[in-house]
Simulated assay, not measured.
Amino acid sequence: MLFINTRPADRAQPLTEHLTKAGFQVLTLPLLELRPCTYGEQLQQLYTELMTVQMIVVVSPTAVRLGMQYLQHSGIPLSRLSHVQWIAVGKATAGVLAEYGVQGQVPEVESSEGMLSLPVFSSDPALNKVAFWRGLGGRQFMMQQCLERHISVLNFILYERALPLRAMTQFAVLKEMAVQNRQSFWMCISSEAGWTNWRQLCEHDHDILQQGHYLVLGERLYQLLQQDKKNSGFCFNISKILSLEPQSVSQVIACLQGKQ
């Protein structure tokens, strides 16, 4: 059974190792590459306002590292943020926060919806300003939900997300495998940007697109793929997952295979 590991290069190895031990053939094909933004006047101004927030939402390990790097560059000691509640999108992000001595709350579902479901968003009447450490284009839904709840947002764009150059090379490998074997595959989709990039890669290879069984993180992204499938007239399988943890991914696949 073939699994396409679309995780960023610096986070792909644990899932690849776990699934390989479980008997999968794994092809690494990262759909996103994170490129740091320059620390300029806009970020400098945002950091001067950071002490006024009650919460910082951190959306990836890269956001943690860049956010802390730029915090130091701004001259603000981390101790000045002792009053802040930190929210991490997942365990990996929380783990990097812990390296800086910061404890972050982690939602059960590692998505915007999961973070919004945390009690702190509904139980803290003093919550009126939230900072987002994120990449360009990410977490738009969550920020909009905050604004609709009359919570001000400080929008820290720390990196850009792009389709890695190596993705084209790896996609050529996948095309060759598909032509030879007509092989179906499993793939995790964890963001709208990742799905957009995958659709771009498959622009002239719809047969490959339709050979995938897509494990989609969260309800909103699941509905997005369902709508895309309906609008395009394509035929492919979609299932929801709650976590990108290797054990969780393999358990979902085993369960779905048992139902086939």
Rank of each mutant, 00 (worst) to 15 (best):
Q42C: 03
L29H: 05
P246Q: 05
Q183D: 06
S191D: 11
S123Q: 15
F156K: 03
Q211R: 15
R220K: 13
E219P: 02
W186D: 13
E33N: 05
R65I: 08
I87D: 10
E99S: 05
S248N: 14
L127F: 09
L154T: 11
H18V: 00
T48Q: 14
W198V: 00
L201D: 07
F234N: 14
V58H: 10
E176P: 00
L224T: 15
P119N: 09
I56W: 09
N237C: 01
Q180R: 10
D228I: 09
S60A: 11
T38K: 10
Q227N: 10
Q69F: 01
Q226I: 00
E17K: 09
S74W: 07
Q223S: 13
W186E: 10
L154D: 14
Q42D: 15
S117T: 09
W195K: 01
Q180Y: 03
S184C: 02
H83I: 02
S250A: 15
V106R: 03
C235E: 13
M51T: 12
L201A: 04
A9H: 11
A254V: 01
E41N: 12
G114C: 03
Q226H: 06
P14R: 03
H83A: 02
S122P: 03
G40E: 14
V216C: 10
S191L: 06
Q180N: 06
Q85G: 02
A63D: 10
C37H: 11
I189H: 08
V252E: 12
R149S: 15
L225W: 12
G23V: 05
F185V: 03
Q200D: 08
